[in-house]
Computed example of a mutant assay.
Amino acid sequence: MDASTHAADLAMMHGYLKLRRSDLLGKLDGLGEYEVRRPLTASGTNLLGLVKHVASVELGYFGEVFGRPRRELPWLAEGAPDDADMWAAADESRASIVELHHHSAELSDATIEELGWDARGEVPWWPPERRAVTLQQILTHMCVETARHAGHADILRELIDGSIGQRPDDPNIPSRTVSELAAHVARVEEAARAAAAR
């Protein structure tokens, strides 16, 4: 591949990462402090924790991996409680976590734009045989990581207030009345029961 193809691919993937970041952060919109923090799964998954986690991970992958300066995060320090990056303590403000998300994105964007597709890095927390990486690998990894957690956030937001899709006018979501939605859910339930009865 020539340099212009690499540049186009890099720009495309970077664009996808930016969109998925926005999708994830948007899931906090319109919710109160309790709703964004409350655990909604048996493992404690919550919306603000997902934003905190993705921002923290992105700082590591686009900062430490490529030897670039990054903010030290107390919840990732030696001796921090397990999964401290997956939830917000009462004294951690929502604004500070959103600011961390923006800071992480800015640092990552600068790394992507300044270093380029073939830049070499090392992931110290990966197995030795996989530690040597390129920016292309890390950008791919973070697109997948961010999309995965944005999907988690989609489900959590639906559990909180029924909101679905990336935004209120999302063209990928069928417009249904309450009764049409109930009928759809009933069809899905009926199909599941029929399949289980076979």
Rank of each mutant, 00 (worst) to 15 (best):
M1Y: 11
D2M: 06
T5K: 08
H6Q: 12
A7M: 03
A8R: 07
D9N: 11
D9Y: 14
A11I: 07
A11S: 03
M12T: 09
M13F: 12
M13Y: 12
L17M: 11
L17G: 07
L19D: 09
L19P: 05
R21P: 06
R21L: 04
S22K: 07
G26R: 01
K27P: 02
K27Y: 08
L31S: 01
E33I: 01
Y34A: 15
E35H: 04
E35W: 08
L40N: 09
S43A: 15
G44C: 05
T45P: 01
N46T: 10
L48C: 06
L48Q: 03
L50H: 02
V51T: 02
K52Y: 02
V54I: 15
A55T: 13
S56L: 10
L59Y: 00
V65F: 03
F66M: 01
R71H: 00
W75N: 04
L76N: 04
A77M: 05
E78I: 06
E78V: 06
G79R: 13
A80N: 00
P81D: 12
D82S: 15
D82R: 15
D82P: 15
A89E: 13
A90N: 02
E92W: 02
R94S: 06
R94C: 07
S96L: 04
S96G: 09
I97K: 01
E99I: 13
E99S: 15
H102L: 14
E106Q: 13
L107C: 11
D109T: 14
T111R: 00
T111W: 09
I112S: 00
E114A: 14
L115Y: 08
D118V: 12
W125F: 14
W125A: 10
P128R: 12
E129S: 00
V133W: 06
Q136V: 10
Q137Y: 12
Q137V: 07
L139R: 02
M142F: 11
V144C: 11
E145I: 05
T146C: 02
A147R: 09
H149D: 10
H149T: 12
D154N: 13
L156G: 01
E158C: 05
L159T: 07
L159H: 03
D161G: 03
S163T: 11
S163N: 08
G165C: 09
P168A: 06
P168G: 02
P168M: 04
P168W: 07
D169M: 05
N172G: 09
N172D: 12
P174L: 05
P174W: 01
S175E: 11
T177D: 07
T177H: 06
T177F: 08
S179K: 07
E180Y: 03
E190Q: 15
E190N: 14
E190A: 15
A191V: 02
A192F: 04
A197H: 05
R198A: 14
